[in-house]
Amino acid sequence: MKCNQIKKGFSDFLTGEIDKTTRKEIEEHVTACGSCRDELESLSAIWTKLGVLPEEQPSESVRTRFYTALEKYKQSLEKEKAGPNLGKLLDGWIERWAPRRPVFQFSLVLMLLVVGLAAGYFLRAGLQEGGEIARLRQEVHQVRQIAEVSLLRQESLNERLRGIDVTSRVEQSDEGTLEALLRFVSSDADINTRLAAIDALQLLPDYPLVQQEFVQSISEQTSPLVEIALTLTHHIKNL
């Protein structure tokens, strides 16, 4: 048999999905052909080496998170069964009242557009432009704060780190955010999260509460890395 045909069976040889006859043919061929023997030996070597990669157990939090999510899902299903769904009611209402013929549908859309434009024109006149922008800024700021607190409450380590990153970009943080960050510094199981929280707190303006908590937390830390980070940040803030 030619080398090309023999090589086609190499993956079968390695995975064990091979019949006895083909295995024998390959074995006989590689005994006589040095090039094929070298290739099969090098493939077998790396295939065997892969066995060194260990099978690991995930942490217990995977199970906890799954059962929490399943419970939430079951509750949402039960709620759905118990009460009428607002979305479905709205769909039914639209289906009942919306015009069937395209020409009427188009007229309705056009009418709504005109009403919207007119309402916008009259409302605009009543608004103070500067005040409106300030209000919008305030709203954006609040939304960002809600987003950061929401990320900080995540069970996933990666999401918590993202939350801390978002926090460090917000100019002003509210009390909830500060408390969440300080909680991470004092009690998060992961050292990286604690260090990231210290970095984020360092970027914030001076809050007396932060200084007090830092001093208290230094003595409670088990990780020397976190202790050093806390001490340094405390000194920098006091310079």
Binding site: S59, V62, F66
Partner: peptide
């Protein structure tokens, strides 16, 4: 299947916490 999936992701990403998130 969660352990098997975890190891599938671990070998793809080489990162434990990301693999746990992906299983979830």
């Amino acid at each position: 299947y969660h352990v098997m999936l975890y190891n599938f992701f671990l070998r793809l990403t080489s990162n434990r916490s990301i693999s746990e998130d992906l299983v979830q």
